[in-house]
């Protein structure tokens, strides 16, 4: 096989890895809280910028990833407690509208601080040397990205299916009132889930900011990609996020190579097909 195709597949896997980190947070929060966090793209962008600032300060990429994740998680906690919880009575739509407004503010503040030029985080020297496997040379850093994504998927699975928090989450998805009557603090579960989701958004920002670049407007593009991941995979499904981000990564990678003028347009095709055949998404349940 032509090495070019292998490279494209690998690019797609890298892209898919970032999509998964983004989409998994969004889909899990939706599954539990029934809100779509429209500021997820802004979380990504802000996380990337914060990671960049930390990287410039400390010189450590790992510290940058953790710092960005944690600060976005903190921001998520503030937003959830301070605003979303207040309008929960008003229904899921007003919560979603609030997140739209917040995304506008976050993106504009980021523009004020970091300016309109695209910035990029340098990948750490220790892991950025090319790696040759089966005669194909590919940047080692991208393998690291894929590994991080797999690790996150495993951790999420463990959290959801092997911890008390996970049990509470899965039970609340089915019947939030009974769970709360059984003595689970549902508000805490919500806050923790929103923090986890925001954390993943922030981490994805550093990963994406290292692989690609950070610039104003990137937040809405990223939001669209993550929405497509969530829609195709099925709202609230972890497995769906895995499969759909793998598919989207490949489509994006190949269309960038062969039809660069329509790469985003082509991402839409699987979404249309899935919606026509299975409106609830590949692994979703009917809502």
């Amino acid at each position: 096989m032509d090495t070019r195709y292998v490279i494209l597949v690998l690019n797609g896997l890298t892209q898919g890895a970032i999509f998964f980190v983004l989409g998994s947070g969004l889909t899990l929060a939706f599954g539990l809280m029934r809100i779509v966090n429209m500021s997820h793209g802004a979380f990504y962008l802000l996380g990337g910028y914060l990671g960049l600032a930390t990287f410039r300060l400390t010189g450590s990429w790992t510290v940058a990833v953790v710092a960005a994740g944690l600060s976005i998680a903190l921001l998520g906690l503030l937003l959830e407690r301070g605003m979303l919880a207040r309008v929960r009575e008003g229904g899921d739509l007003s919560q979603t509208l609030l997140t739209i407004a917040l995304s506008m503010i976050i993106a504009d503040v980021a523009l004020a601080i970091w300016g309109g030029h695209s910035l990029s985080i340098r990948s750490p020297a220790a892991i950025s040397m090319p790696v040759t496997i089966f005669g194909i040379t590919y940047p080692g850093f991208r393998y690291v990205l894929m590994a991080i994504s797999v690790l996150i998927a495993l951790l999420l699975w463990l959290i959801l299916y092997r911890t008390r928090f996970g049990i509470a989450v899965r039970a609340s998805v089915d019947d939030r009132e009974i769970v709360s009557a059984l003595g689970v603090r549902i508000d805490t579960v919500y806050s923790l889930m929103f923090m986890l989701s925001a954390f993943l958004g922030g981490v994805a920002g550093v990963l994406g900011g290292t692989y690609l670049q950070l610039s104003p407007g990137e937040d809405t593009t990223i939001l669209t990609y993550s929405l497509v991941v969530v829609i195709v995979g099925g709202l609230g499904s972890l497995m769906g996020a895995v499969v759909s981000s793998l598919i989207l990564g490949q489509i994006l990678s190949f269309s960038l190579a062969y039809a660069p003028q329509m790469s985003m347009f082509l991402v839409f095709v699987p979404m249309a097909i899935v919606l026509a055949v299975r409106p609830e998404g590949l692994f979703g349940r009917r809502v």
Binding site: D92, T96, T224, V228, M264, V287
Partner: peptide, 13 residues
Amino acid sequence: IVLLMLTLALGQI
């Protein structure tokens, strides 16, 4: 919300 998400994705496309 699903409608909102879908229309957003279509608009973005």
